[in-house]
Every structure is written in structure tokens, then in C-alpha cells.
């Protein structure tokens, strides 16, 4: 082999290699950062009692509306400052991470299970089960889920598990649609035909052949749904319809803080930042997950 001459190959190999290489590294750096943020959140939430410097609900009326420690008037004991009742913001954020992640993961998981079952049945069986289920999905989509959540929470009453059930029960459509379309193409593949020829039943085919082949897209949507559920929980709590007051959530903190935005911005800004970073980190992780799950897209 000789080196390519400029006349036969206008792009030298090096110039062709670098951009995609840089992009790959950049992607991975971003992914690493995102995963680090998530790991930190998860650890903080998991070990909240050890990490938090104060009881998140302990009021200190002598230290109300203290700014973060690095600003004038900040107290060294309250790194991110205090709220209108003198509660330590850092501690509340840490405990809030717990609720956010629990709600996000559980709701996304519940929605994923429902969506996977609906998508599998709908795509594989076709016919009237498909028509009924997809009509249900249309209805579900046409109805803003936050509105539905509001109605149900208003009716049943608020509570951590109510919120999880409501968000999980309304988030399945995205999964169901993607699983269904994957299944529609999978079911005509020869390995499914052969399984049927062997005498495998519908359930066995769905479990053995279809489900393992839709796990990658399921996981990708799952990450998006975790982020969406965290934001939705925050919205509900912001509206006062999420979880009870004693449980600290980022949404409730945001709602507390908005009254003081003009004077004590930190009360609302820190939970807002935490929410944004978490949602962003999850989405970036999901992107990378999708690229890895689809080798063709990854190499491009």
C-alpha cells in the first residue's frame, strides 16, 4: 500500500478522522459529566441523613432569609442560605433529591411496564386489540396528563404514592407507541415465523423474541420519562397538589421561593437549578444510551 495522493483522494485520512473523533470524545465527556451529576444526586438522596448538615424541616426563626454563605450576611452554617422559616436550603435540596429521584424512577418504571405490555400486545396481535389500545393511547395523549394528574390528585388526595401512580399511569403512551412500531417490524422477521412454526405460543414469542429486542428503545424512552416525571412532580408540588408538606420536594421549594424572588432569590433558584441539571443530565445520558444501543448511529 502507498500513501494516498491528493489527486486521487482529496481528503487526507487525518482530516477525515479528526472531526468524528473529536465529536466522540466530546460526547463521552458530556456523558461522563452527566453521569457524575446523576451519581452525585443519587448518592446524596440515598444518604440524605448523613449528607445534609441540618434537619430539613428544622426552623430557625432567628436565621430567616439568610443568603448563601459566600454573600454578605451569609451564615457559615448555611452554605446555600435559608428560606423564609429559617430552614437550611442545602439540607432541603438533598432531601428533595430523594423524592425527585424516587418519583422519577418509579413513575418511569411503572409507565414503562404498562407501555411495554400495551405495545407488545397491540403490535403483535393487531386486529381489534390493537385498535382499542391505540384509541386509548390517542385519548390519553389528547388529554394533557398534568391536567389529568391534577384532577386525580384533587379527587384522591395528595401523597407520594398517589403522585407516582398518577404519573406512571399517564406516561405509558410514548413507550407503547415505540414498542408497537418496533414489534410491527419484528413480527415479520423469520425468527418469529420459525418460533410460530415450532409451535411457540403468543406469550412465549412476546417474552422470548420480542421483549428482548425492544429493551434498548424502552431504556432510551425510560430516561426521558424519568426527567419528565421529575418535572411533572415538581409542577404538581409547585401547585400544592403533590406530596404532603412535611415531605421536602424541589417543586414545593420553588413554590415557596417565588414569593421572595425579588429579595431572596436563592430560595427558588437553587431548587430550580437542581431540577434543570438533573433533567439535563438524564437526557444527555439517554442520548448516549441511544447511540450505544444503535451501533450504526454511533459510528456515524
Amino acid at each position: 500500500m502507498t500513501a494516498p495522493t491528493p489527486t486521487t483522494d482529496p481528503t487526507p485520512p487525518a482530516a477525515r478522522g479528526i472531526p468524528s473523533g473529536v465529536r466522540a470524545v466530546l460526547r463521552n465527556r458530556l456523558a461522563l459529566a452527566a453521569m457524575a451529576v446523576l451519581a452525585a444526586m443519587a448518592l446524596a438522596g440515598l444518604f440524605a441523613p448523613l449528607v445534609a448538615p441540618h434537619d430539613p424541616n428544622a426552623q430557625d426563626l432567628l436565621a430567616r432569609l439568610r443568603p448563601p454563605a459566600w454573600l454578605d450576611g451569609g451564615a457559615p452554617g448555611h452554605l446555600l442560605g435559608t428560606d423564609q422559616l429559617g430552614r437550611d436550603l442545602l439540607s432541603r435540596l438533598v432531601y428533595g433529591a430523594r423524592v425527585s429521584l424516587l418519583v422519577g424512577l418509579s413513575a418511569a418504571l411503572l409507565a414503562g411496564v404498562i407501555g411495554a405490555v400495551v405495545g407488545l400486545v397491540s403490535g403483535f396481535l393487531g386486529g381489534w386489540p390493537d385498535r382499542v389500545l391505540m384509541r386509548l393511547a390517542d385519548i390519553q395523549l389528547a388529554f394533557p396528563s398534568i391536567l389529568l394528574a391534577l384532577a386525580i390528585v384533587g379527587f384522591v388526595g395528595s401523597g407520594l404514592w398517589t403522585v407516582i401512580l398518577v404519573l406512571g399511569g399517564t406516561g405509558w403512551v410514548a413507550y407503547a407507541r415505540v414498542v408497537r412500531s418496533e414489534v410491527l417490524s419484528l413480527r415479520t422477521r423469520d425468527f418469529v415465523t420459525e418460533a410460530r412454526a415450532i409451535g411457540a405460543g403468543d406469550l412465549a414469542i412476546m417474552r422470548r423474541h420480542l421483549l428482548p429486542n425492544v429493551m434498548a428503545p424502552l431504556a432510551t424512552i425510560g430516561t426521558l420519562q424519568v426527567a419528565a416525571a421529575i418535572v411533572a412532580e415538581a409542577s404538581l408540588s409547585y401547585l400544592g397538589l403533590g406530596v404532603p408538606k412535611e415531605i421536602v420536594t424541589w417543586g414545593a421549594m420553588l413554590s415557596d421561593g417565588q414569593l421572595y424572588l425579588g429579595t431572596s432569590w436563592w430560595i427558588a433558584v437553587f431548587p430550580g437549578l437542581a431540577l434543570m441539571c438533573t433533567a439535563l443530565a438524564i437526557n444527555v445520558t439517554g442520548d448516549v444510551l441511544r447511540d450505544v444501543a444503535d451501533p450504526k448511529a454511533y459510528r456515524r
Binding site: 422477521r189 423469520d190 425468527f191 415465523t193 420459525e194 412454526a197 409451535g199 422470548r208 428482548p212 429486542n213
Partner: peptide, 24 residues
């Protein structure tokens, strides 16, 4: 009964690339 009959007749399909579940 159909399953019992299927035991006795098996098939090998045209395309060896799509006739196996890639995850098994």
C-alpha cells in the same frame, strides 16, 4: 393438537441472517 402436529413438521427458512433472534 396443532402444536402436537407442529412437532412433526419443522421448517428452515430462506435467510440465515434473519431466522435467528440476535439476542439469543
Amino acid at each position: 393438537r396443532l402444536r402436537a402436529v407442529r412437532r412433526e413438521m419443522q421448517v428452515v427458512l430462506q435467510d440465515p441472517y434473519s431466522s435467528m433472534n440476535p439476542r439469543m
